[in-house]
Design a protein around this nucleic acid. Structure first.
Lengths: 229, 229
DNA sequence: CGCAGCTTTGAGATCGTTCAATCGTCGTGG
DNA sequence: CCACGACGATTGAACGATCTCAAAGCTGCG
């Protein structure tokens, strides 16, 4: 990126807000208006259904933009909550106007990132619609580990999940009880081991196969991006 | 939109291609490169899993852009197939470069549409993860009817679905057999009636409630869009 | 020490699938 | 005009995956 592009993005990060684990950043159905860049920590967004059940839609990692639906909807379609202590940088959606106008290439990059997020969502949709409980849990573990590894190259087969089994269930469309059983099965099958919240992959290939997991990080091609202004 | 913006968009539609029902526009894992604007007809996109099962990800209606993942991925992550006879307008992704550079407001509008699509996907995710089979079928019917109504104001409680029960199943994560039973139940419950492929909603409120359906068409706010250049 | 929240395990109930058979419709070829 | 075949819709019966309910066990924290 050019100097000017960097300066423009940094303008989104002048303010900072700290959140404790469990703090709500945006609440479903409440007025949106502000967007955020995630600086440090991990969050999730979810919706609540009429019967009180919860579907976790996405996990957020540093570098992600949060509450982007505020660009379109007057009220947020989803709740965003901190899973760890986090630092976010709020900015007004009017800032977006400036970026798009002055830096077409940044606009294009944002569109590209949107597509990647969309594909990640469709992968999860296929998992919920067409794979077994065991496969879904495996897919979630792989996805989160891979997501963490993008930012921390040191992570390999062992990592700290940082989710309760109830949260895993709400992300995969399962019950906490059944998540527990699936984790035990994966362990009994010799595919992973667990201790004190840390997960170790023992047979990543087999996990990926049973999860129908597709790596989307390779195969990216951004050659169409416009030149920097 | 301004004159110039219209001209720019029309440049995407200079070429036209006709497709028969069943024709494949883009095949999963094959080289992408071209994007499309859907002019007439209806398509779907789906992925195939290792065990041969299929998850339908989305239905496409006139005005939609198709195969947009070609902006990012060298190989298409999904297959796109015509559900009716259709007309699409192929354009090169390099055209996108021009639009983003010359018309920031169009870039912003495209970003807004992306968000709306993303929210539609998360609604389906919540449906697959956390609602009953009957609710999912009802949600699909409502979604498609509402989508059709955007383009054809004449449509009310009665419409032609144009999907087989197997397709409904692949979209909702169910078996064709079970879709059949759920449709029968919805009928027996007095919520809808069917004949010759046409569906009539008899109690739309109850359908929406059982489907946990949220109307996203209202509540849209695009006031942040930059001025036209 | 004692509570609160998370994990673990068992037993039985439910929902959705699988397998198999029948029926209807429509287009094709004779 | 009719027979045939393909495909989709429909229905029944049995099976199996996942849920629900209930009871412990574990861990960290005030």
């Amino acid at each position: 990126m050019t100097e000017a592009e960097h300066r423009s993005l940094e303008r989104l990060e002048v303010r900072q807000r700290q959140l404790r684990r469990g703090a709500v950043l945006v609440r479903e159905n409440e007025g949106a208006g502000e967007l955020y860049v995630l600086k440090r920590g991990m969050l999730m967004s979810y919706v609540l259904l009429d019967d009180g059940s919860r579907q976790i839609l996405r996990f957020h990692f540093p570098g992600d933009m949060l509450a982007v639906s505020g660009l379109v909807y007057r009220r947020s379609p989803e709740t965003v909550v901190a899973l760890t202590d986090t630092v976010v940088c709020p900015f007004d959606r009017a800032e977006m106007t400036g970026i798009v106008t002055e830096h077409p290439r940044l606009a294009a990059i944002i569109m590209a990132v949107n597509q990647m997020e969309r594909v990640a969502l469709t992968d999860r949709l296929a998992a919920l619609g067409r794979t077994s409980a065991k496969g879904r849990v495996a897919a979630l573990l792989l996805e989160i580990r891979n997501r963490m590894r993008v930012l921390d190259k040191g992570i390999d087969g062992t990592f700290t999940l940082g989710l309760t089994q109830e949260e895993i269930g709400d992300a995969t469309g399962l019950t906490a009880v059944h998540v527990n059983r699936m984790l035990r099965q994966l362990e009994d099958d010799g595919l992973l081991s667990r201790e004190a919240g840390r997960v170790t992959f023992l047979n990543e290939g087999a996990l990926a196969r049973m999860a129908n997991y597709t790596d989307r990080f390779s195969g990216i091609d951004l050659s169409w991006l416009p030149a920097a202004r």
